[in-house]
């Protein structure tokens, strides 16, 4: 992730389309990723910074959705609370920058923890904390199934939302500004294009990890746990730890996206934790196509573009957004990727 120009990462995630080089699916995937990389770079050199930032936003949201897709699409765990990890990741970046800026320690007991404006430290902390949070929430929530699981994940996210909203130290409802974007050694993160490339590398890495994971024995077990956990259990594998691990990885990816988002906006606030955002992430996953590697990316592109374009046309844009979403769920059962690239997976 430190080297945004590395292309080895990208190939790993493109691998699923490699076996069908000239298939429609491979072409669509390659086009999506290629456009996401080429358009902002072109826009940057033409001086249209805005489009680079828009692309960064799409990329980060897509990355968060990649995380959620791992839980929902591959693991069958319909989490309605992934905003919790997105927001926690964001707050890690915000709080860390806040203490680094003030030269105050984050905590002094039992040992002193200073703030940091180094992105590597921020990401590490965000990953660890989101992982721990997901471990705790997942351990309890995965005892339930179906609608109960949807609701208990929502409840935990609401708990954290209310906590952030009313806890005054880090701004409460006002949120926390990040005055200066957290930095990396050797890279100027305040440059719009470099930051986009960092985000892009993050997205590609997240997709590569998902892809690798699903092709491993672990992935096979996770798929089995989703489709038929009784059979998995008779094979001597308990589905619970498999699901829990997948849930934690999913949360870590979404949390890292949250940290990137906070640094992109220079701002973190409780809205990143709200149930509306959890809902939007789900919408993006479904919009793109559940359980498809490129689904979250397609969904994020479509969702953010609709938000941006409709918002400029009418103040009732959310009405039309609702109509489009309804149309997708009723008539395009397999999401945008299903429509573009054909069916991938049998339900």
């Amino acid at each position: 992730m430190t080297n945004p120009t590395s292309s080895g990462v990208a190939e790993a995630s493109l691998a699923p389309s490699a076996d069908s080089h000239f298939s429609r699916k491979g072409l669509v995937q390659l086009t999506l990723l290629g456009l996401l990389l080429l358009l902002p770079v072109t826009a940057y050199f033409l001086g249209h910074i805005y489009y680079v930032n828009l692309a960064s936003r799409i990329t980060i949201i897509a990355m968060a959705a990649v995380g959620l897709n791992l839980a929902i699409g591959y693991g069958g765990m319909v989490s309605f609370g992934h905003a919790a990890y997105f927001g926690l990741g964001g707050y890690v970046a915000g709080i860390s920058a806040y203490h680094a800026f003030d030269f105050t320690p984050f905590m002094t007991w039992p040992f002193s923890v200073p703030g940091s404006d180094n992105l590597l430290v921020v990401w590490l902390a965000a990953a660890v904390l989101c992982g721990l949070l997901a471990l705790a929430i997942g351990a309890i929530s995965l005892r339930t199934t179906g609608v109960y699981f949807i609701m208990i994940t929502l409840a935990f996210a609401q708990m954290i939302y209310y906590f952030a909203n009313s806890w005054p130290t880090y701004g409460g409802e006002d949120g926390l500004p990040i005055y200066l974007r957290n930095g990396l050694p050797l890279v100027d993160t305040t440059n719009t294009l470099s930051y986009f490339l960092i985000c892009f590398a993050g997205l590609v890495l997240a997709m590569a990890i998902t892809s690798r994971l699903m092709k491993s024995r672990f992935g096979a077990a996770l798929t089995m746990a989703r489709l038929n956990d009784v059979r998995l259990a008779t094979a001597g594998i308990s589905p619970y730890p498999i699901r829990l691990i997948a849930f934690v990885i999913s949360a870590v990816i979404t949390g890292l996206a949250g940290a990137l988002y906070a640094d992109l906006n220079g701002f973190v606030s409780p809205t990143m934790l709200s149930w509306h955002f959890s809902g939007e992430l789900m919408v993006i996953v479904i919009l793109g196509g559940v359980g498809r590697l490129y689904g979250p990316l397609a969904g994020a592109i479509l969702f953010v573009m609709m938000e941006t374009l409709l918002g400029g046309i009418t103040q009732y844009w959310q009405l039309f957004l609702g109509l489009v979403l309804l149309g997708v769920v009723l008539f395009a059962k397999h999401g945008v990727m299903g429509w573009l690239a054909g069916r991938e997976r049998n339900e």
């Binding site: 930032n53 828009l54 936003r57 220079g266 701002f267 809205t271 959310q318």
Partner: peptide
């Protein structure tokens, strides 16, 4: 004129749009 729907991240993105585009 643009609608921020009372969301800080959307407002921030709109500000970028206005300034940079």
């Amino acid at each position: 004129i643009q609608d921020d729907a009372n969301r800080p991240d959307l407002a921030r993105s709109l500000a970028n749009e206005f300034m940079q585009r």
